[in-house]
Each structure stands twice: as C-alpha cells, then as structure tokens.
C-alpha cells in the first residue's frame, strides 16, 4: 500500500516536471508525426496494404517514441543527484520504478492518442470502429514498452552512450510484445473480423507484461541500490 502511495508521488512528480518543461513531449510528438509522414513516402500504401501492415507501421512509430520517452525516465534524476535523495527516502526501489514506469506510460499513451487520428488522416483509415478494444490493446502494448523501457533506463542511466545503448537492449527483448501488439492492432485498426488466434496473441502480450513487470518490481531495488 505504501509502495503504491510512494509510486503515485513519483509518477505525479515526473509528470509535473515533464509538463513544466515539455522536453520529451514536444520532441517525441513531432518526431512521431515526421516518421508517420516519412512512412507514407516510403510505402505509398493502398488501403489493402494498410489493412495488412498498418498495425506494424503504427507500432514502429510508437517503439521509436517509447525509446525517446524512457530515455529521459531516470536521466531526469541525474542533475543535482536527485536519484540519491529518492533512493535514501523511505520509498522502495520497486516504488521508484513503478512510479517512473507509470509516468512514462501516461506520456507515451497520450502521444499515441494524438498519433492515432493523424495516422487515420494520412492513411485514410476509419480507425475508430472498435475504439474500446483498440485503446485496450494500445494500453497493453504501451505498458510493455514503458515497463521494460523504464527498467532498462535504470540499468543504463550512468553509462556513456546511454541514448544508443537503451534501444539496442530494449528492442530485441521486446520482440514478443511488439509482435503480438502489432498483430492485435492490425486486426482492430481496420475493423476486420476477429480471427481465431486473436486470444493467443492477447494472452502472449498479457503474459509478457506480467512476467516483465514482476521481474522489474522484484529486481528494481537491486539495480537502484548501487
């Protein structure tokens, strides 16, 4: 219970900081829109093609955006050595991790919600046909990115070449989650009939989230107490 209260404090602090400076929000949002635009030149897709790989395209953008967001996650604590104060405070490593992961999740999910209509306009898709399910799937995929990303951000925060190291570690490990969320998004985005293997991918995504969240919460203290 205390852990959750502490996590909420950290998440609120991170979000307040971010909205004050808008460093990640502005750069990530404009980056995402530019990538969406570039993809349309690269593929010049027809509606059929979008039905086939729209989810993949969208998640490529979100994966890039996610790396940018989580890069800031623990780096935010570096100036003035705030991380020392947080670790020495009564908040546990798990609480610090959870708070930061939630903040990253909120930021990334917000950016996705802006990108979705832009995507719809650029590629001429009526993406809102199964909006409830779509948002649910987006949330699951976003948590996978935010959770693993924030944890790896803690692992790499003190390193030279941090910005490069993080995505190199993150993307290969996220493949199962990305693969399933791409499949699921594809189905829901274009309002196709729900195929048989839909629940298989959903279970895989949820399983991945449960596993990575458990490992992260369990190992956060080990990583943060140096």
């Amino acid at each position: 219970m205390t852990t959750l209260r502490h996590a909420a404090t950290i998440a609120a602090k991170d979000l307040r900081s971010e909205f004050r400076t808008k460093e990640s929000i502005n750069s990530t949002l404009s980056f995402s829109v530019v990538i969406l635009l570039l993809f349309s030149f690269a593929f010049d897709p027809s509606p059929d093609m979008i039905a086939e790989f729209g989810g993949g395209l969208l998640w490529m953008v979100f994966a890039f955006a996610g790396a940018l967001i989580v890069n800031r996650s623990f780096a935010r604590e570096l100036p003035n050595d705030c991380i020392d104060v947080l670790v020495s405070s009564p908040a546990s490593g798990a609480a610090l991790f959870l708070g930061k992961a939630v903040a990253a999740f909120v930021l990334l999910f917000g950016i996705e919600c802006v990108c979705l209509p832009v995507f719809g306009v650029f590629y001429n898709i009526t993406w809102w046909r199964s909006i409830g399910g779509l948002l649910g799937v987006l949330a699951l995929g976003t948590w996978a990115l935010a959770c693993a990303g924030t944890f790896f951000s803690a692992l790499t925060v003190n390193l030279r070449l941090r910005e490069l190291m993080l995505p190199m570690l993150l993307y290969p490990m996220l493949i199962p989650a990305l693969l399933s969320v791409m499949m699921l998004t594809n189905t829901l985005l274009t309002g196709q009939a729900i195929p048989d293997d839909f629940t298989v991918w959903l279970r895989l995504l949820i399983g991945f989230n449960v596993m990575f969240t458990t490992l992260s919460v369990y190992l956060a203290e080990t990583v943060l107490v140096r």
């Binding site: 692992l155 570690l169 693969l179 991918w201 596993m211």
Partner: peptide
C-alpha cells in the same frame, strides 16, 4: 556494478528469449 547490472540483464534476456520462442512459433 558491471557484474550486478549484467546479471540482472541476463535474467531478463533469458525470460525474453523463452517467450520469443513461443511468439515466433505462433507467428
């Protein structure tokens, strides 16, 4: 520090690789 952080990463790597095996099979 290197030993600790890479041990943690190795555990994540094993977990991820195990799930990837199933995912790729379904894919």
């Amino acid at each position: 520090e290197r030993a600790k952080n890479s041990a943690v990463l190795s555990i994540f790597a094993s977990a991820s690789v195990a799930v990837t095996w199933k995912a790729i099979e379904w894919w």
